[in-house]
Design a protein around this nucleic acid. Structure first.
Length: 215
DNA sequence: ATCCCGAGGG
DNA sequence: CCCTCTGGAT
């Protein structure tokens, strides 16, 4: 199984229920799971559910989540999100994508992660990494993330989607970087039309040229 | 220096 | 479509 090569390619957020995963996922933007896991125990000890977080002390939340970066924006999102949960969903995390994305601070990416990891709904998430990965692997069709999600999903059995999604994101982040993809460490390099000269991401290609020119 | 397992706002 | 928000990693 593909996963064998990627022991870390799974959700590494620690959470006890859907609400906590939702919070942890919002916190995880532009940070490592390790850092998120460092602040969530203190956060959940003070604010274990939506009702508690909805009336939280803003300054205290900022202090707790400060190490995760973007802490003012994230605190804003968290408090508004919690209020929305209380007011519109009886304090519970909705199970439908169209409901999740109406929550402040929750976009398609976060909603997908919650659906997959908290509720076990199979799905592929195409973020910036996976979009780039798809392009490099030869995808020239519709670039809209949802279209790419469907295209990838059509290639694999539904029961593998959630795990596969983590694998793809992880691979895009750790190996198929935007600027200097580590093709030597890539298990599918021989299948990849972009291997060697074949860079299909214009931005990454330009940067790659720059990087090589310097070396 | 540059980018990130984003989202909201102009 | 562009910008900003933060701190860290590489």
């Amino acid at each position: 199984m593909l996963a064998g090569r990627y022991p870390d390619a799974r959700c590494e957020l620690t959470f006890g229920d859907p609400f906590q995963l939702l919070v942890a996922t919002i916190l995880s933007a532009q940070t490592t799971d390790r850092r998120v896991n460092g602040v969530t125990p203190a956060l959940f000890a003070r604010y274990p559910d939506a009702r508690a977080l909805a009336s939280a002390d803003r300054a205290e939340v900022e202090t707790i989540i400060q190490p995760t970066g973007f802490f003012r924006a994230k605190t804003d999102s968290l408090l508004k999100m919690a209020s929305a949960l209380v007011e519109r969903f009886d304090g519970r995390v909705p199970r439908r994508l169209q409901d999740l994305v109406t929550l402040p601070g929750v976009g398609r990416k976060t909603a997908n992660v919650v659906l997959g990891d908290a509720f076990g709904v199979p799905g592929i998430t195409v973020d910036t990494h996976v979009g780039r990965l798809a392009r490099r692997l030869g995808w020239t069709g519709e670039q809209d993330p949802v279209a790419v999600e469907h295209a990838i999903g059509a290639l694999f059995p539904r029961r593998d989607w959630t795990h596969l999604s983590h694998v793809l994101i992880f691979h895009g982040r750790r190996t198929c970087h935007a600027r200097r993809p580590a093709c030597g460490a890539c298990p599918v390099a021989t299948l990849c039309p972009s291997y060697g000269a074949g860079e299909t991401d214009p931005d990454a290609a330009a940067a790659l040229v720059r990087t090589e020119a310097r070396a």
